[in-house]
Amino acid sequence: MKSAVWGLVLLLVVLHHDLWFWNDDRLVFGFLPITLAYHAGISLAAGITWFLAIQFAWPPGLDGETIAEAADPGDPEPQEGGAA
């Protein structure tokens, strides 16, 4: 599924290059130039693709403890320091 999600992202990039509507001045719904409507569709499709990405390709283990928390588990507000 993860590969399918990245495949969709790649597909979006390819579909983004719409040479087929380059000089087309038809209007969709009577008011939206077709090339603009197409790219608005790309934006919506991007939202859907990223929804699938957070569902199926979200990396695990990102919310680990901080270095300071590891040193002192009782301190809820670790002071910021440099790299450990």
């Binding site: 979006l12 983004h16 130039p33 090339t35 197409y38 790309i42 934006s43 991007a46 990223w50």
Partner: peptide, 21 residues
């Protein structure tokens, strides 16, 4: 012209979220 949406906006929709992710 309207082509700027594809050039600047729909590409950003794909790439910005990619960077966040």
């Amino acid at each position: 012209g309207v082509g700027v949406y594809g050039m600047l906006a729909s590409s950003s929709g794909i790439v910005h979220s990619l960077c966040f992710f």
